[in-house]
Design a protein around this nucleic acid. Structure first.
Lengths: 139, 139
DNA sequence: ACTTCAGTACGAGAACAATCGTACTTTATT
DNA sequence: AATAAAGTACGATTGTTCTCGTACTGAAGT
């Protein structure tokens, strides 16, 4: 048997859909959340894998786990353990192969919109964009 | 006042978001439903406006209304009354202006996937793709 | 005037999704 | 061994979306 790598991710594997199993509807759904879209944008402009932590998302750790799982299970990102962290990378090649132009289209659309919003001031939230955390307002 | 057209849509107006109000996340969400994506594909390849009826969607009339409303309110389609029918058209110009490449990316992705599925056989449904209608099977 | 056609409004139920907190696991550091 | 770091699993909660049926409206045809 081949010896497992000494210091990295003993035997923790994560389930990913194979390339052919990726479905457009699920990809679109994954990208339709502003939080997740933000993550994808960051990954797209990063040179290499990023750990979950660097995003400083305004949600709890478990919610964070949830969103990254949605991205992974829809086939948008690939996740691997590396030491105590979990590294994330866009599945660019797979997505470009399956849906040429889609990812670029979405990314540049997101950039367009972000640019527009920086000028016009932030848009009113659409009630589902981001929910208020459940903190007690009496604090 | 200008005289209203004699035989068409007396005074029924429908609320549409202005071009600048269209939000990427909502567009993606609207397109993430297989039923709605199908409608959008049909509209994209149609020469002109189509009435809601021609789609023969496997849902009730009220559900149909719901889906078309989602498409309209997200800015993906424009709807106008015309006689007893309601005509639907893709807001191609608006979308292309706001998000160049996005719609084409999604449409060709949808076509890619449809082609793939015609070969490989239909994919297993993802449990949210389509729910069973509540009709009594004893009919 | 009546009927048919096409779609809406409303209310309700079920499924889904986003969020949280607490307890736990795994890896690395001290 | 004990602690810290990064994340997961689970259950609960709340809000959103999909779905339906029934009753209704407005336009067109008879």
């Amino acid at each position: 048997m081949t010896s497992p790598p000494a210091t990295t991710s003993g035997g923790r594997e994560l389930a990913h859909p194979a390339r052919e199993e990726i479905r457009l509807e699920q990809v679109l759904h994954a990208l339709a959340d502003p939080l997740r879209l933000g993550v994808v944008r960051a990954l797209a402009s990063a040179p290499e894998d990023l750990p979950c932590g660097v995003f400083a998302l305004p949600v709890s750790k478990s919610t964070c786990t949830h969103h990254f799982r949605v991205l992974r299970e829809s086939g948008v990102i690939r996740q691997v353990y590396r030491g105590t962290a979990k590294m994330n990378a866009l599945r660019r090649a797979d997505l470009d192969h399956l849906f040429p132009g889609l990812l670029d289209g979405v990314l540049s659309a997101a950039q367009e919109q972000a640019g527009r919003e920086r000028e016009d001031g932030p848009p009113r939230r659409t009630a589902r964009d981001r929910r208020e955390p459940r903190t007690d307002p009496a604090g």
